[in-house]
Design a protein around this nucleic acid. Structure first.
Lengths: 184, 184
DNA sequence: CTCATAGTATAAAGGTCGTTCTATCTAACC
DNA sequence: GGTTAGATAGAACGACCTTTATACTATGAG
């Protein structure tokens, strides 16, 4: 086997716990305990907690994009709407309680940390993704539209904490339709 | 004097530090040090760290609403736009790095904590605020519009981390105009 | 003057954190 | 069978955390 099953378990457990209680709110002890793994097993695979956080973020980013890619046909009539819908479904499936990347940016801001870079990289990619879509559709103000749609996604994520993923997504889809319609 | 100056200093310093590094990322030691105050002075005014967090949130909420109230004339032609604008200016003045209330909800979720209640209360109030505005303007689907505008504000806040407060606000204002225009 | 109030300094209890060390066990290979 | 490399459990480490305890100073009101 190319990758240890223990390592996968650790990543999975860590992602869930970090997601539920925040990076600083979860100790390695809890992760080790719930993963049924010895302390040294963790340190054999990850040199530090920070490194574990980094790999969790990388893994999550990979899953997010493969999810989005599999749900969005970029050459369809309305790839924007598909993207917003897909994002909403992702939120729902995660029983979402916030944005892990945004939290990483905030929690590790100003500490000269690779963690922040990874998280910011994800956000930038989201922006570029919508710019690419707008470009393909030949929208004039592609940059504005991309920024606005990204803002919508971010808003959807936040609102999920307040009114749930379904409702939040409904609203953002409605807004996205209006936007795309009135943008040359 | 009705309120201690030391207490005010503590609240001010704590709010800034919590805001910059998160609730769990800041220790009382640091707060005490930067406020030039003895340990027992803090504990004379706040029975625990959780209680300090609560009071910081309450104070911040108060400031936020008085800011919004002073910038939004509810009977004007476009109170919605004014609210979005005011929110943007608030973000800018805070040199914003995220939403303190959202972070509180996430950091203290599921711990049966008063902190979470306060933070959620703030979010609910935001929603009700826009419902009230929509009602006054006699919008048909006032509830939908209120949800959408709240989502816009949340998105603006998140996007600030990525592209700054000015740009984020520009985009949300543009979207808000479109929305209000095409809503009966 | 007396006495309460507010703040100060210092220290330590008791816990948890991330990390490392030790010592035992397992399993594969020669 | 003996050797070796890696995984395991669990203790130990030092740092830091929140909270409490004790004792001291300054101030202002009655």
């Amino acid at each position: 086997m190319s990758r240890s099953v223990k390592k996968d378990t650790l990543l999975k457990v860590a992602e869930r716990l970090f997601y539920e209680h925040g990076f600083r709110g979860v100790g390695l002890k809890q992760i080790i305990s719930e993963a049924n793994v010895a302390t040294m097993t963790l340190y054999n695979h990850f040199p530090s907690k920070d490194n574990l956080v980094e790999e969790v973020l990388r893994q999550r980013e990979e899953r997010y994009w493969s999810y989005l890619d599999s749900h969005v046909e970029m050459d369809s009539d309305s790839p924007f709407i598909l993207a917003v819908e897909a994002h909403g479904r992702w939120l729902k499936e995660q029983s979402y309680k916030g944005d892990m990347f945004l939290r990483a940016i905030e929690d590790y801001a100003g500490t000269d940390n690779e963690i922040e870079n990874i998280a910011r990289g994800h956000k930038s990619k989201l922006l570029r993704y919508f710019q690419l879509l707008a470009q393909r559709k030949g929208k004039d103000n592609e940059r504005d539209l991309a920024n606005q749609l990204t803002l919508l996604l971010e808003g959807t994520t936040s609102m999920t904490t307040l009114i749930g993923a379904e409702k939040a997504t409904e609203h953002s889809i409605a807004m996205a339709r209006t936007l795309v319609q009135y943008t040359s």
